[in-house]
């Protein structure tokens, strides 16, 4: 099978969906420019024309409400934000209008909208260019929230999101765009609301979100070297969360570590822990643990970023603690290979 990067997989999906369905439109700040949102929208404007793929003024508020009006008149808008932080300018439309429109009208008016936004760490992106905000969106009834971590899932979940009759927030970590994977050429859907077990194990269950999936798989490989067998589950969809495989796994391992790419306080990780606490009470061998961002705004300088963000090492150390193992020597391990791609702002 062909290998594609996550960015190429997303781009291929957009081409296929716009070809398949003339009601799909794609827009956002910088969408048709030469950089094309990490390359994911390059060529769409040329192929489908300025009525179906267009740039916008710096007006997140109207352009989000615009999606609702366009959806009510039969289009399937995909609105893209190069930083999820900019979505805060659109929260009135997302939370007060889009999420509840179908409900308020007694189910008469589905609103098929996809909001794509880039999350996460880059190169000194600081406090306003790096947020995840998972729980901002998962908290709201009526919004589906998707965060794929592999190129194959990126392509399939984006197709599913575009074809879904509900608003879907589609969150992609910027570093994922360079990850490569086998990706089928034909169009396909990866179902929304279905988790995936990436690695089976009997000692510890790790539930990881977005970029932390990559880190968790890395950590699992390191832990396997010292005989610790970790099960890694990627929920893929954050709302609605597919709890069944998580609960089944924790019943098997008796231990749960949640590696969330977000702040822990009042976050998605607390929600997963609460559900597992109810479903697995009595089966847990020890308390549920979580790793996530430090409880601070995101700092800019790399030395502080390294303390702020969790990674495979954080996961390894927490796993050792949970399994009462002495800390292993990690001095030769390369934990930041993706970060080194950055030689300037991207």
């Amino acid at each position: 099978m062909r290998r594609l990067s996550f960015a190429e997989a997303i781009r291929e999906c957009l081409f296929q969906e716009m070809e398949r369905d003339p009601s799909v439109i794609v827009y956002g700040i910088g969408v048709p420019d030469f950089k094309g949102i990490f390359g994911t929208t390059v060529g769409l404007g040329e192929k489908f024309g300025p009525q179906r793929c267009f740039d916008t003024p710096l007006s997140e508020d109207i352009m989000t409400g615009f999606a609702l009006g366009a959806a009510l008149k039969g289009l399937r808008p995909v609105h893209i934000h190069i930083r999820t932080d900019f979505l805060l300018l659109a929260m009135n439309q997302l939370v007060n209008m889009i999420s509840c429109h179908n409900y308020m009208t007694g189910g008469h008016t589905p609103v098929p909208i996809v909001i794509r936004a880039i999350i996460g760490r880059g190169w000194g992106q600081g406090a306003q260019h790096s947020k995840s905000l998972f729980n901002y969106f998962t908290h709201i009834p009526g919004l589906k929230v998707v965060a794929p971590a592999t190129p194959r899932d990126g392509k399939g979940l984006l197709a599913a999101a575009i074809r879904d009759n509900n608003p879907v927030v589609f969150l992609e970590h910027r570093w994922l765009h360079w990850i490569e994977d086998d990706v089928p050429e034909e169009s396909y859907e990866t179902p929304i609301g279905v988790a995936q077990t990436l690695r089976e194990g009997s000692d510890l269950t790790i539930v990881a979100t977005s970029w932390m999936v990559i880190e968790a798989v890395h950590a699992a490989k390191i832990l396997a070297g010292v005989g610790i067998n970790v099960e890694v589950i990627d929920p893929r969809t954050l709302a609605p969360m597919d709890m069944a495989p998580i609960i089944a796994s924790v019943k098997k391992t008796g231990r749960l570590l949640i590696a969330d790419y977000d702040w822990l306080n009042s976050g998605l990780s607390a929600e997963i822990a609460a559900d597992v606490g109810v479903a697995c009470f009595g089966r847990l061998k020890q308390p549920i643990e979580r790793v996530g961002f430090a409880p601070t705004p995101c700092p800019t300088v790399r030395t502080l970023e390294n303390h702020f963000y969790p990674n495979a090492e954080t996961i390894v150390r927490m796993a050792e603690k949970m399994l009462q193992r002495a800390p292993m020597d990690l001095s030769g391990v390369d934990f930041f290979s993706h970060e080194r791609r950055f030689r300037g702002p991207l």
Binding site: S23, I25, Q51, R52, D61, I62, M63, T64, G65, F66, A67, L68, G69, A70, A71, L72, K73, G74, L75, P77, N92, Q93, N96, M97
Partner: peptide
């Protein structure tokens, strides 16, 4: 808050 909805619907009318 409904003003942008009309603008989006107007684009849909034009596209369609």
């Amino acid at each position: 808050s409904t003003i942008p909805h009309a603008v989006g619907a107007a684009l849909a009318a034009k596209v369609r």
